[in-house]
Nucleic acid binder design. Sequence first.
DNA 1: CTGAAAGCGCTAACAT
DNA 2: ATGTTAGCGCTTTCAG
Lengths: 340, 340
Amino acid sequence: MRGRNPFDGKPQLTLRDVAEQAGVSEMTVSRVLRNRGDVSERTRARVFEAARSLGYVPNKIAGALASNRVNLVGVVIPSLSNMVFPEVLTGIGQVLDETELQPVIGTSQYGLEREETVIYEMLSWRPAGLIVAGLEHTDAARAMMAAAGVPVVEVMDLDGDPVAAAVGISHFEAGRAMAQEIVARGYRRIGYLGSSSMSDHRAQKRQAGFEKGLSEAGVALADTCFYAGVSGFGTGRGMTKEILERTPDLDFLYYNTDMNAAGGLLYCLEQGFDIPNQIGLAGFNSFEVLDGLPMRIATMDSRRTDIGRSAAEIIAANALSDEKIELIPEFLEGNTVRSP
Amino acid sequence: MRGRNPFDGKPQLTLRDVAEQAGVSEMTVSRVLRNRGDVSERTRARVFEAARSLGYVPNKIAGALASNRVNLVGVVIPSLSNMVFPEVLTGIGQVLDETELQPVIGTSQYGLEREETVIYEMLSWRPAGLIVAGLEHTDAARAMMAAAGVPVVEVMDLDGDPVAAAVGISHFEAGRAMAQEIVARGYRRIGYLGSSSMSDHRAQKRQAGFEKGLSEAGVALADTCFYAGVSGFGTGRGMTKEILERTPDLDFLYYNTDMNAAGGLLYCLEQGFDIPNQIGLAGFNSFEVLDGLPMRIATMDSRRTDIGRSAAEIIAANALSDEKIELIPEFLEGNTVRSP
DNA sequence: CTGAAAGCGCTAACAT
DNA sequence: ATGTTAGCGCTTTCAG
């Protein structure tokens, strides 16, 4: 019985019921309820009254089938627990709220197989568009996206080969730019702290770009530290303690996210380190919630809301485009790095 | 053209196409693709191959209309930006992942009118169930929920009059219990710091319960401080500074959420206050991300994941129940309060 | 094990 | 300004 609707025995109200109640045809009711075509004011009022009094709720399934229109936009992200994704959704929502379109969210839990399933399920509802986080997908998922017949936008990342349109930043370049900033400020004994998960492709790319940037400046990464599990103050604190005990002469710590950096910052302050002189810190992802820490962590704003807005605009324009929109992350100096 | 599907000119594949390709009837294809009824192994293989090679994606809209079944569960929450709601979604997801059901998320942005619209839109897709955060709704929304004909569960809160089933905690009692803990630990000059928004009904209830608990112990709230906007370290820090400058002899600060409490904690530590002796702090909502702060904030776990799981179980059982499930929040002592 | 017919509730297109 | 007709793509039901 699972998933049975409506509850057996309680038939749903149809246009016909409203039409009878109002003494007009189904078609007229349909027009009134959708504000289509000319209907006399008198009839309008009668229909609305009939619908209201019966508690009629239209059946969008039937409407969608008949009209071949669905006002849903599928959005596939890895998770809602990582704050970056709700922020992308905020941007999407800002734009779609101005339209008839509604986002429908699905999560892949960082699994490519699962992502494929979610995309398949979403497309089976024939949405008006699809927004998918990241560029890494199974072949089948890419094929579905390519054949969707509606606007598809991949978001967050531009380091790779998008199926269709894409909006994001280059995480590789973001890492590289951070390396340049750090080296320019005189740091030389640099550690990287990040996730051991291979599924965080964007963090991987930042790390690669970071190492590239360092090596271009003739600096080698002095040490790395990885964690399994979720980012957070405890994680950042633990990693920081570990890497500094192993390599005490580090003068800079670059974290995969500000959440971990915040934990590291608190640890370093407790240890009495002189930040940013003795040791500097930087993260990624500028989280508003962290304003109010004892120091402002140097970071790079990944422009998540802008990315969401931009992707939603492509969908709203019903543009079957394959344009790539590269946003440039903003370096926020904070006060955990020395001046250049 | 907005919302038009599929893209004009690219007709969607139908069962008929697959049937022709496989040389069987539409009905047989339908059976194979849904694993229904007996189909010979040979036919199955042929059909799967045909579907795969064509890249066929079933049309759930047509399927839902014909079968009167929809495997979607509507979930209406105020926002995704406040971490408590994604955590409820996590619990819902854990349970629904074991079934055919899929959550579809809608946000009300803390607006009752908007919530009504979202509920209406969701019900118009004839979902298999509906989960709505909170007990405060417009009359129209309550009427729709009552007449939905599918399981409806209100979550998070039990202080009020649910339409049907409800799972949550009593925020009033949570506030009251916290007051008792604080008074039992000898604090007497107590301040409350929270949101000025009337839309956060649950925080309002906690505050009311808190004041009730204090007055039962013969203690009056010494001061209050409210903010507009979002919770975060900066907000908590700012409120804390303000209330302590105005009422320097406070010996306890109770915050509406751990996020604000964390900002307050950092401020108090910087000021050199002796926590928990000179001043104690407590919040609400135990966020894992905060593990790793210099001290563990006393708080109450609002059992958000359990709430989500429990609500999803009612939906998954297709139970048109009106049972109320009260979960009891757990007091977590941390080390920002004295021992009793 | 497979197929044919009927229709889900609504809307596009064409009347009037 | 309103009504009529014919499906949308699928599943249910009933026949074989």
